[in-house]
Design a protein around this nucleic acid. Structure first.
Lengths: 138, 138
DNA sequence: GTAAAAAGGATAAAAAAGGTCTTTTAAGGG
DNA sequence: CCCTTAAAAGACCTTTTTTATCCTTTTTAC
């Protein structure tokens, strides 16, 4: 349950790699793919997705590539995950207000809401800046 | 992300319906299916699954049917969800110790662990007894 | 023995995930 | 200013998973 897809996993690896680069440096998808061990074409699609949402900026043609769309400290893990996996929705009936005809009586409903809230809060609290830091070994 | 499948949703509806019945009363799958609005054959599979794990008891033949395998207060929502959806694993690398070669360096890892822990705790805290209670309206 | 009910196996349609191929855009040399 | 080449963007295809459905078998009460 609640498993991140490969796409989501690759997405995080890729954008964290970008976040580790010097500010303003343009990086090729091929570089990111090699460094993260992800298929280049698949990663390219993921980055397209990021670009549409402004999480990364892209430049086409010779000399093109990608860089972060804003400071690493201004991109949360939640934004990254939701860009690729869609909103955090543990159950269909939380998708839209009123879509769950049983909402008023449904005792499970508040549990999903609670999970949704907790997960969102955890992911909101982590930025790419945090993730790009080298971890203390030992 | 983290969406419960239909199967998981039906499973919860079905077993909560069982939990609402008088203790010891044997219920047909067809009854549960009708009451919950789920295809009978599909629900039957789900209940077979529950039976294997002892969450419900089943009786074959004439006069057969299902009832809870133990008191509703002793069955948690987590047990129900994991019976159908499998363990709560937000990322593949949490599946087994050592399976993530990057674990030591991976800065994302602790975030998934935290999510896993929070979600498990929320689901652990809810029992079928809680879910079977009529909700206060108004 | 017959009918009722769950168990189990096989199959199939639909959706999602994963991956590849073609097109468009842009830079730079001649 | 055109041609070539590098690179992202977008369209397309394949595989796997989900979501079922149907049919046969086993079990049990009467």
């Amino acid at each position: 349950m609640m498993e991140l897809t490969r796409k989501g996993e690759y997405a995080i690896r890729g954008i964290v790699f970008l976040a580790k680069q010097p500010t303003g440096k343009v990086i090729l998808v091929s570089e990111v793919a090699e460094a993260t061990g992800v298929s280049q074409t698949f990663l390219a699609k993921i980055f397209q997705n990021f670009a549409k949402l402004g999480l990364v900026n892209s430049f086409r043609g010779t000399g093109g590539g990608f860089l972060l769309g804003r400071a690493a400290s201004k991109i949360t893990l939640r934004q990254v995950v939701e860009a690729i996996e869609g909103p955090i929705i543990p159950n269909r009936c939380l998708t839209e207000d009123g879509s769950c005809s049983r909402e008023a009586q449904c005792t499970v409903h508040p549990v999903w809401r609670q999970i949704q809230g907790e997960v969102a809060a955890i992911l909101d609290a982590v930025t790419l800046e945090d993730l790009a830091k080298e971890k203390n070994l030992g």
